[in-house]
Simulated assay, not measured.
Amino acid sequence: MTRTHLTTIAAVFSLGIALPVQAENIDHVRQLLSTRQCANCELSSAGLVLAQLSGANLAGANLAGANLSQANLAGADLTNANLAGASLSGANLAGAKLTNANIQGADLTRSYLVGADLTGTQIETAAIHGAVGLPTSAGNAEMFYQMAMEAGKRRQYETAIANFNQALVRKPDSAPALIGRAMARLELGDQKGAIQDSEQAAALFDRQGDAANAKSAVALAQGLKNPPDQQRRGNNFGQSLINVVGGLLQMFLTR
Rank of each mutant, 00 (worst) to 15 (best):
A51V: 05
A211H: 12
I9T: 15
Y145E: 03
L186G: 13
H129M: 09
Q104S: 12
R185A: 00
A167V: 02
N235I: 14
V49Y: 12
T125A: 13
L204P: 05
G75E: 08
A116N: 12
L188R: 15
L108T: 07
A10I: 06
L98A: 08
D229K: 07
L186H: 13
N40P: 08
G209M: 00
A96S: 13
A148W: 02
A203L: 02
M149Q: 10
I9Q: 12
A160C: 11
L168F: 05
L98T: 11
A160H: 04
G238E: 14
A23N: 07
S34H: 05
F13V: 06
L113P: 03
L178P: 00
F164N: 01
D117R: 15
A138I: 01
G90R: 10
A86V: 07
D210F: 00
I161E: 07
C38H: 06
A126N: 02
Q156I: 00
R154W: 09
A64P: 01
V218Q: 14
G115I: 04
A84I: 05
L220F: 08
G223Q: 06
I161D: 04
T121W: 03
R110E: 14
S216G: 04
G115N: 14
D107W: 01
L68C: 08
A71T: 07
G152E: 07
S34E: 13
A131H: 07
L33E: 05
A194H: 05
S174R: 03
A201N: 03
G193L: 05
T4P: 13
R255H: 00
L88D: 05
L108R: 01
A81Y: 07
G85Y: 01
S87K: 14
A96P: 10
A131Y: 03
T4K: 12
V218M: 10
A74W: 11
N57K: 14
L118N: 08
R155N: 14
R36W: 02
D190R: 10
G95F: 08
V169W: 00
G85R: 04
A74D: 10
R154I: 07
